[in-house]
């Protein structure tokens, strides 16, 4: 447990040094104080920080990023053609789809990827069923989302995390990858 606190502190302090760009005693003192306060504020989340990582995990994540960057370029060209030449035309689609993902962090990651890709935005995710509501610029983009390769790659990351059980159990229950994600829609007044 203590190792996680130290790891988080070092991560935050390193981030501070990178952003500050200077390493005189004033910057170091402020960085240490801010990092300590942030670790204290995040003390409930510390048990969920993974300590171990493997080459396979990094490779799987890198594969996701490559697919994402390629999709962003492809979609940007498509949206640019729509804006400049009207081809393909604007035919908005409200897509509901249930990707084969089980964990909340996997769903949030996919939602971020969808929104980052021009031409598609995630409006909502049902935390119970995992159904995504997506707004797409045209049916072509919407159909592409249904069979997007990154879904399988995120699924592979989910399975990798499950196999390794990289999160430490704590008193009163065990944390899993699933406990990391936000529950989209939890704030709904009717609980639907």
């Amino acid at each position: 447990m203590e190792r996680r606190y130290i790891a988080l502190f070092l991560l935050l302090f390193g981030f501070w040094l990178v952003v500050a760009g200077e390493a005189d005693w004033e910057h170091i003192l402020v960085g240490v104080l801010v990092a300590l306060v942030t670790v204290w504020l995040w003390r409930d989340l510390v048990p969920q920080i993974p300590l171990s990582c493997s080459a396979r995990g990094v490779l799987l994540f890198g594969q996701c990023l490559l697919t994402l960057v390629w999709s962003i370029i492809e979609s940007a060209i498509s949206v640019t053609r729509t804006v400049l030449f009207g081809n393909p035309p604007i035919e908005p689609v409200l897509l509901t789809v249930r990707p084969n993902l089980e964990t909340n962090w996997g769903r949030v990651f996919l939602a971020n990827c969808i929104t980052l890709t021009p031409g598609s935005v995630t409006i909502d995710i049902d935390p119970e069923t995992g159904v995504f509501i997506i707004h797409a610029l045209n049916p072509e983009i919407a159909e592409g989302l249904c069979s997007w390769r990154i879904i399988d790659e995120i699924r592979a990351l989910e399975l990798w995390g499950k196999e390794r059980a990289i999160y430490a159990p704590t008193a009163g229950g065990s944390y899993s990858l699933d406990s990391l994600g936000t529950l989209a829609g939890d704030h709904r007044p009717d609980g639907s």
Binding site: P92, V93, L94, L95, T96, V97, R98, A142
Partner: peptide
Amino acid sequence: PLAAETRAMKG
């Protein structure tokens, strides 16, 4: 309101 030409689709 959504644009009039918006249609629903299930994946």
